[in-house]
Design a protein around this nucleic acid. Structure first.
Length: 934
DNA sequence: GATAACTCC
DNA sequence: AGTTCTGGAGTTATCC
């Protein structure tokens, strides 16, 4: 950070036009349109907040056009003559820009006869003469003439706050192909239809750049026209030379206007909150107002997190903090004696917080051998304790290290110390590794989970990514330590000095991130969901993973064999139908066989140019009476079941436990759902009879039963509650068939057909489907689908209100929220690209419902172990979660009593913070296998 | 590594 | 000018 003065000049007039087109048409409580003003206000907030940041403003002024007339009209009476009137709902926002600026106690400068651009140019000149840096907050191409980037001396750049990019000389070159000093010449040749700068007919940006680059400047290009070979361009240049010269004068910026305020008067300081508060409340800018109430004041210490506007969503969230020392890998200590270890442990106890990271020989927390532990006690204070480096056999060479057991004994006490908070990034992993050695970790904070609670949807949450975003630091990578592919080595083989740099850095970074994120949680409303749901869940989910689930290997092998035989039979039939052998598993070959060789009609091609052969397409062919289609579908199903389940699952059985240990990600789904990998136990087949057999491979241990408990219709229930639909709530309260009830509302009668349709509509609405999507699903026309949707909204007006309110909220704030306050961000909700935007809209409609459902089951999971223990059922183990279902393993005698405890915890998951207006019904079954338990 | 296909809620 | 074709996940296979 430099103590140099840095002047920010905000081009208010051009900003408001852009904001008007980019932001939704909000109105304030008085009904005045304020969308652009809101954008402007959040921009000022962000700019003022960056005071004291590197490259942030020390001085700031907003520059406005005084009127539509300026001295240029005297030079050329047609200047800006055919500019259209501003849109009707933008006009009342012009004066509000001045109000907003005054509310921030910032200088607002305008001057008769001069345009904002001229004042900006003049202030820039004056500041540069004083040796100040200048940032012009605008994306107006005319102002690019002012950019400068000398080897030494002041720098002038531009800042586009909407795209959050800074533009320097390089960007000018990119846009115009020449440096800033020649931009005026380019603009003069091009002309500008909006400002009615004539330019030369037939010359656009490309030709203008070509001419200036070739001849050197405007005058030389005009002079050179005479010698050009005859062309339309040559004629135009000669004919319009005078217009080009006039244009050059019009686009030139006046750099010596009188300055209404002296430079020093533009000094940026703490912004008095009182007038700002009045302004924010007057216009209903609630999120900013709340921030102000929370103590965040833009412009002066303390500087706190930025506004929760959609614009802010695109930038990384980095609150200003007391300065931390730079990350210095050379300062990390490699601990090789017990004395040194004791000193670090004492330091951690004194600090009452320690960041922890474990290194293992493989990436599996159940089998991964512990290789070392790193600790950090303060930013910049970190060490690595190697415990298992070197070869594993008795005679292998091992670098000097502390005694494994003695070190773990000492760490065990520290990690269980109630007075020392343990911080880690993805602690679930470290808890799992250390549990293998009888070491427990409590209390703890997890920066991965904290980041997710704050920024789900904004960016990833990996340690390296967060370090780049929040600490502007690039971490050493695992790849740099261990290599990749065949030559990859185990972390145990990494030399101690390198291992120390890598491992201690991770602990140091985690601790720094924790310092940032713990500050943001309460300010941004993330505390409740983090403390009540996600943080306690880390240990609960870890114990589920470690428990694993028993899988019957012989049974799977038998199924694999059956599937293989059946596949061979079908394969032969398919090849016979096709008249030649081919790879059925290749969609490309299959498409060619079906549509080129056999000449089947009605195929569609995807964007790769290949024929589509997906399930929809094959089912269509089947209906058209094409026998091969059915065979392919059957073959595909068996192939999927065999490769993904019956073969793969056998390989996933852990050799030492004899069980399958999945890994759950707490940050895997933007909505707050868990995800499951290695293997994914959340997509075990159930829909078809053949697939269902795989569920029978998941069995209870001898003397035990599996118990499966699932929420019935949870998302529809939550939709009925959240959108406040009396008819649906009533139907749920009376335990009615909800799809049948919907069918009555939609079609006036219930039969198989109308119920199935109603069910489709119910789910489709939750997913924000369009009429075209529904039409495809129900095989009706888009018009009929639209009629159905309209009728649904008419019958359940709460649903259409919910959708409207959810989308408005997402556009205004950039995020949606669950009933428990979990945020999901939608940075693309205002994307110019329609597909992207509508995709975000559908996701935003669904996220509060799916996310609330995820919150509920997670709350149930977090409470479950204690509830079971309190009922004397500590031997009942929670094993699996499948979004609305929990699977337990219970000693046979405990299965019945466990049912009631589990039902109680699940049904009461919303309480006490929330009273739902619909009951939560739980279906519970038991059996020797997962299949039986359903 | 990308794409298409399929599995689940 | 012309299109819009349900949300959230993970794994396997083929092909480049």
């Amino acid at each position: 950070m430099s103590d140099k003065n840095h002047l920010y000049l905000v081009d208010g007039s051009s900003y408001i036009f852009r904001a008007y087109h980019r932001l939704p048409p909000l109105t304030n409580p008085q009904g005045v349109p304020v969308g652009a003003v809101y954008g402007y206000t959040t921009m000022l907030w962000k700019l003022a907040k960056d005071l004291h940041e590197a490259d942030g403003p020390t001085h700031l002024a907003v520059i406005l056009d005084h009127s539509s007339q300026s001295f240029r009209n005297e030079i050329y009476d047609q200047y800006k003559a055919n500019r259209p009137d501003p849109p009707e709902d933008l006009v009342p926002q012009f004066p509000l820009i001045r109000h907003a600026t005054r509310a921030f106690s910032l200088p607002c400068i305008e001057m008769e006869n001069f345009e904002a651009d001229d004042l900006i140019a003049s202030y820039t000149e004056a500041a540069v003469r004083e040796g100040w840096d200048v940032t012009i907050v605008s994306s107006d191409k005319d102002l690019m003439q002012l950019v400068r980037e000398p080897d030494e001396g002041p720098r002038v750049d531009m800042l586009d706050t909407m795209k959050n990019v800074r533009l320097g000389v390089e960007a000018v070159h990119e846009k115009f192909g020449v440096g800033p000093e020649l931009v005026g010449d380019i603009l003069a040749l091009m002309g500008d239809s909006v400002d009615n700068v004539p330019g030369v007919r037939g010359v656009g940006p490309k030709t203008a750049t070509k001419l200036i680059v070739e001849y050197g400047d405007l005058e030389k290009a005009l002079a050179g026209a005479e010698t050009m070979k005859p062309s339309k361009l040559r004629d135009n240049l000669i004919e319009h030379a005078d217009m080009a010269r006039l244009s050059r004068i019009l686009v030139d910026l006046k750099r010596d206007c009188p300055l209404p305020d002296a430079l020093d008067a533009l000094k940026l300081g703490a912004i008095p909150p009182a007038p700002l508060k009045v302004f924010l409340d007057e216009h209903g800018f609630r999120s900013l107002s709340a921030k102000l109430d929370n103590g965040a004041s833009p412009g002066g210490p303390p500087t706190l997190p930025k506004a929760t506007s959609a614009a802010a969503a695109e930038a990384p969230s980095t609150p200003a903090l007391p300065a931390m020392p730079a990350i210095d890998r050379a300062a990390f200590e490699c601990v090789t004696t017990l004395d040194a270890l004791d000193r670090w442990i004492a330091e951690a106890r004194a600090a009452h917080v320690v960041a922890v990271d474990t290194e293992t020989a493989s990436l599996d927390s159940v089998t991964g051998r512990l290789v070392g532990v790193s600790l950090a006690t303060a930013p910049g204070r970190a060490c690595y304790i190697p415990l298992g480096h070197g070869g594993t056999d008795m005679f292998a060479e091992r670098p000097e290290q502390v005694d494994f057991d003695a070190a773990l004994d000492r760490l065990r006490d520290l990690f269980a110390d109630e007075a020392v908070l343990k911080v880690g990034h993805n602690l679930k992993y470290d808890i799992g590794v250390l549990a293998q050695h009888g070491v427990a970790i409590a209390p703890y904070d997890d920066t991965l989970v904290m980041s997710f609670a704050l920024d789900a949807g904004k960016h990833g949450h990996g340690l390296d990514e967060l370090a780049r975003l929040h600490l502007d630091h690039v971490c050493l990578t695992f790849k740099e330590m261990c290599g990749t592919g065949k030559s990859q080595i185990s972390f145990a083989e990494v030399p101690l000095d390198r291992a120390t740099e890598y491992a201690a850095e991770d602990a140091d970074v985690a601790l720094r991130l924790w310092n940032l994120l713990k500050l943001r949680l309460p300010l941004e409303g993330g505390t409740r969901v983090y403390e009540m749901v996600d943080r306690p869940l880390v240990a609960v989910v870890e114990s589920m993973e470690r428990a694993g689930v028993m899988v019957d290997r012989d049974y799977l092998a038998r199924l694999s064999g059956e599937f293989a035989t059946e596949m061979q039979r079908i394969e032969a039939e398919i090849h016979k139908e096709a008249g030649q052998p081919f790879t059925i598993g290749s969609p490309k070959q299959l498409g060619e066989i079906l549509f080129d060789k056999l000449g089947l009609k009605g195929g569609r091609k995807g964007k790769s140019g290949d024929w589509s052969t997906d399930q929809n397409e094959l089912e269509r062919l089947e209906r058209d009476g094409v026998p091969i289609a059915r065979l392919i579908l059957e073959w595909r199903q068996l192939s999927k079941l065999k490769s993904t389940y019956t073969d793969a699952l056998q390989a996933q059985i852990n050799a030492s436990t004899g069980r399958v240990h999945t890994s759950y990600s707490l940050v895997g789904a933007q909505t707050g759902r868990l995800s499951s990998t290695d293997p994914n136990l959340q997509n075990i087949p159930i829909r078809t009879e053949v697939g269902r057999q795989i569920r029978d491979a998941f069995v209870a241990a001898p003397g035990h039963l599996l118990l499966a408990a699932d929420y019935s219709q949870i998302e529809l229930r939550l939709a009925a509650h959240m959108a406040d639909v009396p008819e649906l709530k009533e139907a749920f309260a009376q335990g009615q068939d909800i799809h049948a009830a919907t069918a009555i509302e939609l079609f006036g009668e219930v039969n198989r057909d109308t119920r199935a349709k109603a069910k489709t509509v119910n789910f489709s609405i939750l997913y924000g489907i369009s009429r075209w999507g529904l039409a495809g699903r129900l095989e009706i026309t888009p018009d009929e689908a639209q009629a159905l949707i309209s009728r649904y909204f008419e019958r359940f007006p709460g649903i259409s209100d919910y959708i409207r309110d959810t989308l408005e909220g997402a556009r205004e704030h950039g995020y949606t929220e669950t009933l428990f306050g979990r945020k999901t961000w939608f940075p693309r909700i205002k994307a110019a690209n329609q597909n992207e935007r509508q995709g975000s809209e559908r996701a935003a409609i669904n996220a509060p419902i799916q996310g609330t459902s995820a919150d509920l089951i997670k709350r149930a999971m977090a409470r479950m172990p204690a509830a079971l223990a309190a009922a004397g059922l500590a031997d009942v183990k929670m094993l699996l979660q499948v979004h609305d279902e929990l699977v337990f393993e219970a000693p046979e005698a405990l299965a019945e009593p466990a049912k009631e405890v589990i039902r109680g915890v699940m049904a009461g998951a919303a309480e006490p913070v929330l009273k739902l207006s619909v009951p939560l019904d739980i279906d519970i079954g038991t059996g020797k296998s997962w299949g039986d338990a359903h």
